[in-house]
């Protein structure tokens, strides 16, 4: 088990959103304010850790023919728990994420990690994997959120800071409303992924240069 490697994979080299391109629906739909992005990220991280742990613990019991159905039921159970908890304790978040909380069930990240990692590895490693992938997902969401909120509503930290209003950076009337609408989701995510590919390539060439210099 290599915690550092798993962390690096989750956050950078195998980031679920930016590299593996999983869980696009939620990434595009709810990234309109920092509050939504953080809330969704944390909810998914918790569900990912729980489902990874349980699936990894049961990996020898579940027959492989019906494993996908079993995984989906386990995931749906945890999603329901989180959904009810959010409704009870953070109703504002539950309201603004709406139908996308129950839709976490079909978020490919969770099923993907269950199939690719938790079904083959031990409980502790799977928990760490869930945490790292969750952090990677949350980071990507937060990046997209901050850009969209800044350009679309001209604020930072909407729903969280300054009594829910967010800190105004661009004066009212100037921000491009379309960025918080569906169009902006596609455009901003496209640019963010392009940016991450650009950075990744740069890091790779630098690494190769270093090795060549040796």
């Amino acid at each position: 088990m290599d915690f550092k490697k798993q962390f690096k994979e989750g956050l950078l080299t195998k980031n679920p959103v930016l590299v593996q391109l999983l869980g696009m629906c939620s990434t595009l739909a709810i990234t309109t304010s920092l509050f939504n992005g953080l809330g969704m990220g944390i909810a998914v991280t918790i569900i990912l850790i729980c489902s990874n742990v349980l699936i990894s613990a049961l990996r020898k019991v579940i027959p492989s023919q019906i494993r996908i159905a079993a995984y989906i039921v386990i995931i749906a159970g945890f999603v329901t728990i989180v959904d009810l908890l959010l409704q009870a304790y953070i109703p504002a978040l539950s309201e603004s994420l709406g139908v996308f909380i129950p839709l976490i069930v079909v978020n490919c990240i969770i099923l993907g990690r269950a199939e690719a990692f938790a079904s083959k590895n031990g409980v502790l490693a799977s928990a760490v994997d869930g945490l790292c992938q969750g952090i990677g997902y949350t980071t990507a969401l937060v990046i997209v959120c901050v850009i969209r909120e800044l350009l679309g509503s001209g604020t930072f930290g909407g729903g969280l800071l300054n009594g829910g209003e967010g800190i105004r950076i661009i004066p009212e009337g100037y921000p491009a409303m379309q960025i918080v609408m569906p169009v902006g989701g596609f455009l901003v995510l496209g640019c963010v992924i392009a940016g991450s590919q650009f950075l990744m390539k740069k890091l790779e060439t630098r690494k190769m240069d270093k090795e060549a210099a040796k």
């Binding site: 391109l21 169009v183 455009l187 496209g190 992924i193 590919q197």
Partner: peptide, 9 residues
């Protein structure tokens, strides 16, 4: 992928 997303946008 990125150009596909921009197209979709």
């Amino acid at each position: 992928f990125p150009i596909a997303l921009i197209t979709a946008g």
